[in-house]
Write a protein that binds this DNA or RNA. Structure first.
Lengths: 365, 365
DNA sequence: TTGAAAGCGCTAACAA
DNA sequence: TTGTTAGCGCTTTCAA
């Protein structure tokens, strides 16, 4: 076990060359599959490599070629099935093109994201895919580009950066969902997101750091406004990072005098917590409260009632981001390109008329 | 934009040294934070680095030090929330110790896993965490160790390899779950897994490639046997890789004359498909069929009825694997170590007496 | 504390 | 087609 466990000095091209009695460069050519080598010599070299159990050193290779065949991915929360699925799309696509993936999970923390970007430059990745945590603090993303590395934003765009983006057209679907609630007679509609606000409480026009959440909010507010609802932003809630917080917010909303008659959850993690809390409170969906959520995973059709959702083509977004990045890396793309995938409001059974709809005043000043 | 977009030659230690009017080695010492440098000189060097926008080249550094501060992770399916959560545990732990993570997603394909192991050696990762796809074909894992890289197996152990393992004690929980079904009067109990069989159909004693699935099967079969059930393996089903296949298998099982009165799903992905199919078939849980699944995500408590599950400490498994690997990398561990985390059968409401239990014959030959 | 020089393992340029 | 010689950007001797 001593020999097989101890780390021995790696076998190098020079060792193989010596064994095969050729020059180092010749061995390197045979091993690396570049340049011209006679069949005869190639054979000798490969046999020698086999005998010595040679494994190329990718670091040394990358130093010379300037390419690492690696792409870096920075996401907020790999535990969120949304990113898990997008990651599979990226991963599948990268592999098919011969790239490896380095993953950095930031917990939506900007400082961690900045650090990850720095490390990716150090590691000399060929390109980076980021779901950015901030809409405006994007210096590190610009640095990434300045370092010559292609950059593709996933799921979220940012302010003032001329860069490739692959995202979902979420606003229209959010609008459709909220409009459906309004049409059903709801006038007190809550929205719960994990996004941290820069300053609380939220006020109309405040900048939200995640554009895909901003899209949700814009769509919802527009629908409520068009429905003649005053202070449509009154029941928007943010900062539900942990499951506990989402549950607490839900409880708090419902404890108020003018609590919501409908809740929209910003993603599937939030949704689970909200539903769990509703159940704990003994509230039925949709009899006591209507519910809509973003993301369409299979469990949403399994619960009673099946949840009306906004479905997003998550895997495809991951694939498109990876494809775009690789095209850039390989010089097959030019000009910043924004790709938007459609989202869809899927009407199931978690929405009904608000409780006591008949007695509801027309406007709640 | 030309200057900011074109990839310029990277600024190197030599450039910084020149700017600061010191020797290359001195600049390197100040920049790398090693060796002895006077405060005065360090200051000059750092200012020069700042001015020139210097970014260290991690590849060059790794070539010299032999360390990359990177750990490689190989899993079967990052989309599976089990691995997503374990990955977060690994990722959080790695970051806290200053390591980055390279992820390889194999789709449970052994050839892809072998290739991933090769690439990780090329990239000179400091250590590897693998959820191996095969119980016996582990040559590539042994090669990993022979290359001097610590290796930790996640969720699954393999045959004949003296290596660190972090897994879940799944057998006892599987036994408890199956026993509960038997005690409730069930005698035709099905189990559905995504694992590919080496040869079909499954026969007692066949080697299963994933030890954590083997543990499930062992526990279940033991409980059925002790319950006096003949051919307890008759209703085990494998190879449900895609959601469609899991649904087809479910349909097929239930169409048979002697179909199951209870189904156990091997993971949460399978579970969603099975439940969806049951619903499509108009079967109620638990009135028409009892159901138990592995993994305890929040949605399992939200559906009607809440699902009885086998809960596993997934995040903790990821954390433990990363900790063990890092301890090895840093020479703080010795002797192969197997860590087993307990799983727990959580009794909820998806199990009842089998339909028509009174008329059920005692044994179904 | 600083500097000069060698070397990590590979690719690339140039000659032969 | 092969060999020789320089690097890539850093760390690490060894002297001064």
């Amino acid at each position: 076990m001593s020999e097989s466990t101890r780390r021995r000095r790696d076998v190098t091209v020079a060792d193989v060359a010596r064994e095969a009695r050729v020059a180092k460069a010749t061995a390197a050519r045979a091993l690396g599959g570049y340049g011209a080598v006679s069949d005869d010599v190639r054979e000798r070299v490969l046999v020698a490599a086999e005998n010595l159990d040679y494994h190329p050193n990718g670091l040394a290779r990358s130093m010379n070629t300037g390419r690492s065949n690696t792409i870096g991915v920075i996401v907020g929360d790999i535990e969120n099935p949304y990113f898990g699925l997008a990651m599979r799309g990226i991963s599948d696509t990268a592999r098919a093109s011969g790239y490896d993936v380095i993953l950095s999970n930031t917990g939506e923390n900007l400082d961690v994201e900045i650090e990850a970007a720095r490390v990716f430059v150090e590691k000399r990745v060929d390109g980076v895919i980021v779901a950015p945590a901030s809409f405006t603090r994007t210096q590190h993303l610009d640095n990434l580009r300045k370092s010559g590395r292609p950059l593709v934003l996933l799921d979220r765009h940012v302010d003032n950066l001329d860069v490739d983006v692959v995202e979902v057209e979420i606003r229209a679907a959010a609008y459709a969902a909220a409009q459906h609630l309004v049409d059903s007679g709801h006038r007190r509609i809550a929205f719960i997101s994990s996004l941290e606000l820069r300053s609380t409480p939220y006020r109309r026009g405040d900048v939200l750091d995640v554009s895909s959440v901003a899209g949700r909010v814009d769509g919802i507010l527009q629908a409520l406004e068009e429905g003649g609802i005053e202070h449509p932003e009154a029941l928007l809630r943010f900062g539900a990072q942990q499951g506990d917080e989402a549950r607490a917010i839900t409880r708090e909303l419902l404890a108020a005098d003018e609590g919501p008659t409908a809740i929209i959850a910003s993603d599937s993690l939030i949704a689970m917590s909200v539903l769990a809390e509703l159940r704990a409170l003994g509230l039925r969906v949709p009899e006591d409260i209507s519910f809509i959520m973003f993301d369409d995973f299979e469990w949403t059709t399994l619960i009673s009632p099946p949840v009306s959702v906004i479905s997003q083509p998550v895997y495809e977004v991951g694939v498109a981001a990876a494809k775009q990045l690789i095209a850039r890396i390989e010089g097959r793309a030019s000009g910043a390109r924004i790709q938007r995938f459609p989202a869809e409001f899927i009407h199931r059974e978690s929405v009904s008329l608000p409780r006591g709809a008949a007695m509801e005043p027309l406007s709640a000043t």
